[in-house]
Computed example of a mutant assay.
Amino acid sequence: MTDRSLPGLSDEFSVDAADAALGARIREYRMMRRMSLRALGEAAQASPGFLSQLERGQVNSSIGMLRRIAAALGLTVADLFDQDSEPGPRVVRRADRPMLHTAPGSRKFLISQRPLSHLEVYAGEFDPGASTGDDAYTHGDSQEILLVLSGAVRVELDGRAHDLEAGDSIEYRSSVPHRVVNSHEVSAEILWIISPPTPD
């Protein structure tokens, strides 16, 4: 690749090194997606042979082709060059989890990280008496699972209450009005798992 405006390509990188690094990242993301070269080729309008050479750093690719490859992998072109976001295992320390704005007495943290976004995972903490808000809410129409990690909560689904304790879970559509409340005297911690991701 010769376009130095793309992230991840410094002047210190030789073109060969950049091609090899890019190819390795494409292969890792493809393997994480459990896609064959043929499947990626069909989605990106490229031959499996070309993709194989690209993954080995033996050929260059146009920006247009990289856009198609990235889209087929559920990424952006910038993701392919982002050296700070490795495609392998990524550890997110509890203290480093991004926190989202929530109702008073509760905290919501994003666990799942970009760029592979097949699902969203959030951790929630509820002080005694705290909730997700006075009103039930919806977001998209995805499969959502709520798992209670500690304490106990009440999950209200379309006006119907479900009392859950540690280890209990409940599954529902995110399009169903839902609300979580901790009416107990101890804090509660939960996990939300949503697939596919939905806008908040």
Rank of each mutant, 00 (worst) to 15 (best):
P7G: 13
P7D: 13
E12Q: 10
F13S: 09
V15E: 11
A18Y: 12
A21Q: 12
L22P: 01
G23I: 04
A24V: 09
R25V: 10
R27H: 10
E28V: 04
E28T: 11
R30T: 12
M31K: 14
R33N: 02
M35W: 08
S36I: 11
R38L: 15
R38W: 09
E42L: 05
A44I: 06
P48S: 08
G49A: 04
G49E: 11
F50T: 10
L51N: 01
S52K: 07
E55K: 09
R56G: 08
V59H: 13
S61L: 13
S61G: 14
S62I: 05
L66W: 08
R67E: 15
R68A: 13
R68H: 01
A70S: 04
L75G: 02
T76R: 08
V77I: 11
A78S: 10
L80D: 01
D84C: 06
P89G: 12
R90G: 02
V92S: 03
D96N: 15
D96M: 05
R97K: 07
R97E: 06
A103N: 04
P104H: 10
R107C: 08
K108G: 01
K108T: 03
I111W: 04
R114P: 11
P115C: 03
L116C: 09
S117L: 15
E125A: 15
F126R: 00
D127K: 15
P128I: 11
G129E: 12
S131A: 15
S131Q: 07
T132W: 06
D134W: 07
D134R: 05
D135E: 12
Y137H: 08
T138C: 14
T138W: 03
G140T: 03
E144L: 07
I145G: 00
L147E: 01
V148H: 01
L149K: 03
A152C: 08
V153M: 06
E156V: 04
D158G: 04
A161C: 13
H162T: 05
L164P: 09
A166G: 05
A166S: 14
A166M: 08
S174A: 08
V176H: 10
P177Y: 07
V180G: 00
V180A: 04
S183C: 05
V186Q: 07
S187F: 14
A188F: 00
E189A: 10
I194C: 00
S195P: 03
S195V: 09
S195H: 15
